[in-house]
Design a protein around this nucleic acid. Structure first.
Lengths: 245, 245
DNA sequence: GTAACAAATTTGTTCATACTAATCTGTTCG
DNA sequence: CGAACAGATTAGTATGAACAAATTTGTTAC
């Protein structure tokens, strides 16, 4: 612990966050007390508090005076695109689904805009996100083939906790990203998209395009989400949370 | 200072933020040092740091080790809707404008959706935001008439720093809000909107609708922004910032 | 049993202090 | 004048300590 570089509060934060993402502390349980964590990490309580505060402000934990730190979610709403569709639907007591459409491998024949970002060898996964069986969003995820060796339909369960593609990419393939860029634009439904989403052709839709990068400036993935429903945020207060409409 | 309620770090934070919004510390200047602030507020350096950290993470200030705290902006991107169009355009070296269209007073004859939120007596201001003279967004702002007594066209300059309507509402009418809700949806341009934005009828557009509330659960304002250009965010890293496309 | 109270636990706030690292400033030397 | 160095200034990290406030747990009395 003490041989790693960087400030202690960062190392404690990194360790705790990794433990959360690995399921070492599961949702709904309580973390060890500040004093206990301070002892095990061999730092002062002030330092461990600093790390915990970061996790609270990011939405992983909820602090309750007199009680302790509760694990709130493993996929906090860090952004719009990166927000877990699965989590937000489950929290509303509805049933999220992810209908797999197809997976396509390209090698030089991908659209130029994609190759420019991710290289020639890319794979595209198309899925239809549903709520209680009704189609809500068409999701196209593009990845460099080299970073997801052996990827196949089986990596994308249609129900359960692991339908979040971001969890799959991080858990199964070790993909990490530190920054992302998202754009929201407007378009009208084509024949194909309209049939998937069950809306008439020419219906105005929202398109969320999200590009994620790692620290080495490489593009990790590109995702395009077509949706008929509005995007809703709650702003201000402590932290923001995308809502389902 | 010491007679007010609540924790000290909150009081120091509130004071500093108010000073920033009032222009007591102007953009580009340096704040007093931590030690100086600690002395003037009669708190410890740890406490004043906590307040400054909050202002840094919200985007008002930039901290530079060995140098000091720089005032970065008076309207940090606290959200998409609440982001200052003026600031973001100026930072790109372009010229923001706000063409005033009209101001209309309603008393019971406003659209029902508006009356439900803001009451019967409401006022609607329509403006066209421009970049280098080109129309970019049509902005409709709805306010309860009672909270903006005497409002008129003159309150909305077409150029300069005060074209941000949020600054006007806060500075001139003392309007404050703590939470807001924003939705983004898709629509197609009507005749009127199309002519304002200089796009063909039926062009797919984005609509950003933002509702702001104060602590007493009252709705402070409602704003609708029609735009032809995409909305872009940078996510991850330290904080998010809307970009101009 | 349970209601009321007391004690222990746990997070929240605040301070004084020490040291490190980056930046700025003034002085000296060529 | 300008470069290089030394010192002062200022933010960054970290500790230990103390008390407040909220919650949980344990105990007692009825």
């Amino acid at each position: 612990m003490n041989d790693k570089p960087g400030p202690k509060y960062k190392r404690v934060y990194d360790t705790l966050r990794k433990r959360l993402q690995e399921g070492y502390y599961s949702v709904g349980t309580r973390l060890p007390t500040e004093d206990a964590l301070a002892t095990t990490f061999d730092v002062s309580r002030v330092t461990v508090r600093r790390s915990l505060d970061m996790l609270v402000s990011e939405g992983y934990l909820v602090a309750r005076q007199g009680s302790g730190y509760l694990v709130d979610t493993l996929s906090p709403p860090s952004s719009t695109c990166l927000t877990s569709f699965t989590d937000s639907v489950l929290k509303e007591g509805r049933e999220p689904g992810a209908r797999f459409i197809d997976i396509t491998f390209f090698d030089g024949d991908a659209p130029e805009a994609i190759s420019d970002m991710l290289g020639n060898a890319v794979v595209c996964i198309r899925r239809l996100r549903t709520v209680d069986g009704e189609p809500k969003m068409l999701v196209n995820t593009w990845l460099p083939t080299a970073r997801v060796a052996g990827i196949s339909k089986e990596d994308f369960p249609e129900t359960g906790q692991d339908q979040s593609i971001l969890r799959v990419l991080s858990g199964r393939f070790g993909l990490e990203w530190s920054r992302a860029c998202e754009t929201i634009r407007s378009c009208v439904a084509s024949d194909e998209i309209g049939s998937f989403l069950k809306v008439p052709v020419q219906t105005p839709l929202l398109v969320q395009a999200c590009t994620a990068f790692d620290d080495e400036q490489g593009t990790v993935f590109f995702e395009e989400v077509f949706r008929n429903t509005p995007i809703t945020f709650n702003l201000g207060g402590s932290r923001r949370q995308e809502q389902l409409s």
